[in-house]
Design a binder for these strands. Sequence first.
DNA 1: GCCGTTTTCGGCCCGACTGTTTTCAGTCG
Length: 586
Amino acid sequence: MTKNEIADVLTEIATLLELKGENPFKIRAYQNGARNLEALEDDLGELISSGELSKLKGFGDALVQKITELFETGKLEFYEKLKASVEPGLVSMLEIPGLGAKKIKAMHKALGLDSIEALQKACEEGRVAALKGFGKKTEEKLLLGIKNREAYGKRHIWWAARAVADPILAGLKALPEVVHASHAGSLRRKRETVGDLDFIVGSDEAKPIMDWFVAQEGVAEVTAHGETKSSVRFESGLQADLRVVRPPQFAFALHHFTGSKDHNVMMRQRALSRGLSLSEWGLKPVEDETFENSLVAETEEDIFSHLDMKWVPPELREGLGEIEAAEKGELPKLLEYSELKGVFHNHTVASDGRNTLEEMTAAAEAKGWEYWGVADHSKASFQANGMNEDRVLQQLEEVHALNTSGKFKTHVFSGIECDLLVDGSLDLSEALLMKLDYTVVSVHIGFTQSEEEMTARIIKAIEHPATTMIGHLTGRILLRREPYKVNTQKVIDAAIANSVIIELNANPKRLDMDWRLWKRAAEKGLMTSINPDAHRTEHFEFVEAGINAARKGWLGAENVLNTRSLDEVTSILSLKRNHLKESLSS
DNA sequence: GCCGTTTTCGGCCCGACTGTTTTCAGTCG
């Protein structure tokens, strides 16, 4: 069983224990275990066999034993027994908003409800409202929750969530009562997907702001409308929360609601170790009853400063080492949008893009880029109008003509997105590929191979002397398609050994390779390229999503090929090509 | 279930909102 599959089992164990009414701290231990496992960058098998796993924080004897059993046998007796003891319908009932383990247990006990269907029927018949602790409103809410489960349960890609959030934030900032306003939560942390939108406002007059917020266009339902917090659901299913605090509390609230939860827990523990208590209302001595004498924080920087740390960029606040780095003053200088000097992996009308070589060049120049690279599909991607040898040569001539025409200041690199065939060979000959400036190698077919086959296939491509970079390493489409199975650590090591780049595909639906893997990979020496995979000029904008992911992966300009100048990139690419020539002549 | 130079037992982050309650439990983030 893989690391992530084991993490899923631990999460499910936590859920089942919750439904059984187990000790909440035991439940948390399993949840932490799952999260820690997912964040693990080392090879799990090695950690287990070397005994290193039990030395890591959060992995005690019980968890190590269970993880080992799952890893080695793919099964866990404890889990099987636990699962058999809980009705599966109870687990699915947790998906309904407002329904937690305790209420589910209560309804199961009193009414024998063991599925969402049974719950719906009971609500319609008024049997739930008759229960102690439940009422008419609860019943109505549950029915609505069941009805909207499909649309509301979904997460949203960051790019789409941001498009909804920006006008709301602008609207808030335009209100006369608003002193400070910001988005928060996973949107501000730039997670690849966002569950809901969080807004924080600093103001002395909350009511008109709340009233404006719940009366916005497109609001389908107001789920809360209190003095400090309001929540709405838009017709799209996206939920948005607004919290209004007084201006002196704004920085504390912003920090608190930006999270993540793990980051906040560590920050609170750090405060406690200094005799202070941190919450969204302030930072006060533990013994104080109120926040009246809270330390002052004009900005988030002040909060971190009170705890003897440098400000941590929101992208890093995932509880993955940022606290330790901040206290040592070892936070990285993260990649900035302005540092990009060009992009690779883009398509034109020659394959499945919408714009011509000239249009793309003009768009790249308008962005102030020194260069861009064309990488249309190769012939095996028939559905994407992939190019055969003749068309590749023809495009190469067009690129050359454009570069020498003096029409644009922006240089065009000639590349290709070459299909990686099922047997690990490339779709075009070495002789042809060496005529181009670079090669992006991507998997577009044969997704269902085993992990061993896929890993071997990709490593074979990495060892091919013409390969400059690997495109969208795992093929995932966020919220739609799971990644294909591949041992990323082995691929990363092979890429480093062969001086091959792994792209960070910046398409907001891909963001592949995942940000969680970059910190460790870059430390080991892996280089990336922020690649928009543009199929039209507007898609160049995708680099913003790629930069978000790079920042979440602790990457700085030094880790990224396309922060290099035209001259530097030219020499890096030709170095790789010269190796190819040597290998062909030998 | 995890953790520990104060503890191997007794802690484990903190607060708002809702609905059902006359003081609080459950849920959520």
